[in-house]
Write a protein that binds this DNA or RNA. Sequence first.
DNA 1: TCGAATGTACGACTACTCTCGTACAATCGA
DNA 2: TCGATTGTACGAGAGTAGTCGTACATTCGA
Lengths: 117, 117
Amino acid sequence: MSFRHPDRDQIRIDGVLSALGSPIRLDVIRILNSGGDHNCTMVLTELGLSSKSTMTHHWRVLRESGVIWQRQSGRETVLTLRRDDLDARYPGLIDSILAGTDQDASAEAARPSQPAG
Amino acid sequence: MSFRHPDRDQIRIDGVLSALGSPIRLDVIRILNSGGDHNCTMVLTELGLSSKSTMTHHWRVLRESGVIWQRQSGRETVLTLRRDDLDARYPGLIDSILAGTDQDASAEAARPSQPAG
DNA sequence: TCGAATGTACGACTACTCTCGTACAATCGA
DNA sequence: TCGATTGTACGAGAGTAGTCGTACATTCGA
């Protein structure tokens, strides 16, 4: 299994934003950003999802846009946020996006009487 | 003509990122960020595009995600970047995205043209 | 009042995205 | 070696996004 990753200078901002313009993939990078090694099943479990094949799709989107590294290790696939590359290319971007997810959670909690919040 | 805009606290990061995860809409906010009033035709012309109905679609995406204001003024529609709202909710986000588009342009120029690698 | 300018609404079409089930390949432990 | 674990590949189906042409509503200026 060999994964295609873009080089740092092949990463494009529209690809990154498009990849992160999805609640499920935002959750993924929040989890990866928390540190430590993660394999696919760990993230899947933490998100409370069940379909491996669906996640394979999301790994590809994140990987091909340059957001994550995906590395085979034995029978597991280790997932890592490409913080160094992303920070080098787009300083402050990932930080403000991660802060934004917290901001949203607060706004959601503060907004009274929204159903299914 | 009355446009539906989200309140500041209804804006969500995934919607913003998804809206800006498109080269054409990134170009739009670059243009709007440069200051001054813009109507639809001005932006259309500056982008070198021709289809008004296609742009109506993009205005809607940008407006409903909270990225731009769209205000009727006579027979024109004035477009404005919602910098104050976006900066208040996601400090540094728009700045780093706009900087990112410049970064990409540089990387593009530095990368010796196509298949040579 | 009439025609030009401005931009939305709508329908159609194509292409892509997301999701899932099934099948399969590789690896690890007993 | 055998079975369980891990995760990709593939195909299908539903839904969404992007594009365009045409039609239409509103406004401005002559």
